[in-house]
Design a protein around this nucleic acid. Structure first.
Length: 289
DNA sequence: TCCCAGGTCCTGA
DNA sequence: TCAGGACATGGG
């Protein structure tokens, strides 16, 4: 892969194991939207970024040259996905799932944003989760600018949310999660360093810590660990993963935590990648539904 | 009207 | 420990 910079664009050429639909629609992120021309626009930190793909060329629009490191980190460009696929390709089911979602990459997202986003995901639908996050950003984030006729806002920081009235959070349609979001913001302000250090600590310690937040249970904690803390030996189990696992691997009575442990045992340090291939495969094909 | 959604929390055995 | 219900909100 090569990276060139030209006029607000980063051009990645000869990119392998990279597909924008797979990356942005495999359920790991909520702020990327497909444009009419097939490109995706989203927000990273305080930047609006548009991503276009032509086969093995990927064009990252609306950036400066100094954003190279950020982009490499965010899109996990230094990870060898060919190797990961080899390690996760344990049976025919996984082969099928990997073939289907061949261009999935696990994004390296911000811890705070991921914590709140997945708190919102509890007992909610993906379109609604996206809407609530957009509402919160518009209400409490900073205005970034207009891009292709739409206004964009940064994800609200903890300070702003900690000061917000619960009713105002509720107006963003966060429902019963509203007081939990405010509480999490208050705590995060004091414990920011602990949270940002979880990527350097053990999976077990990180999991235990995250679950002490109201609104973060086993599933959400594992998503946060996987999508923002580079803990890849975790296998979050949601309704889709539960269905596909119960259909294809374990019996119908197996509980979520036991499904997770079964998979973590099977896929080891690559569990998170396996989970993403399976989630995308199950959801796009309605497996178990 | 009822059911359910990338769950979590609380309660009562 | 563990099943069962509540929880905001909106779409099917």
């Amino acid at each position: 892969m090569n990276i060139d910079y030209k006029k607000n664009k980063l051009i990645l050429s000869d990119v392998r194991d990279f597909n924008i639909k797979h990356i942005f629609e495999c359920g790991q992120c909520f702020r990327w939207n497909r444009e009419e021309d097939g490109t995706y626009t989203g927000v990273i930190q305080n930047k609006v970024i548009n991503v276009k793909q032509n086969d093995s060329d990927v064009i990252i629009n609306n950036v400066t040259e100094s954003d190279i490191d950020l982009i490499e980190e965010y899109f996990d460009l230094k990870t060898d996905y060919a190797e990961i696929k080899k390690r996760v390709d344990t049976d025919e089911i996984m082969s099928e799932a990997i073939k289907f979602g061949y261009g999935i990459r696990i994004l390296n997202q911000d811890e705070w944003e991921t914590m709140v986003s997945f708190m919102i995901s509890a007992n909610n639908r993906i379109p609604m989760i996206k809407k609530v996050i957009e509402n919160l950003s518009a209400a409490f984030g900073n205005y970034i600018g207009n891009y292709r006729g739409r206004d964009y806002f940064s994800f609200p920081d903890a300070e702003k949310l900690s000061k917000a009235k619960v009713e105002k959070i509720q107006e963003c349609k966060a429902g019963f999660r509203s007081p939990r979001i405010k509480e999490a913001a208050e705590r995060f302000l004091k414990e920011r360093d602990i949270v940002y250090n979880i990527k350097n600590t053990s999976y077990d310690d990180g999991l235990a810590y995250l679950k002490t937040y109201a609104g973060i249970g086993d599933k959400v904690a594992n998503c946060v660990l996987l999508f923002s803390m580079r803990q890849f030996d975790t296998f979050p189990v949601d309704v889709w993963v539960r269905r596909v696992m119960q259909t294809l691997y374990v019996d119908k009575t197996t509980k979520d935590v036991d499904i997770r442990k079964f998979a973590e045992n099977k896929f080891g340090e690559f569990s998170g990648y396996a989970q993403q291939y399976l989630f995308f495969y199950a959801r796009e094909n309605g497996i178990g539904k």
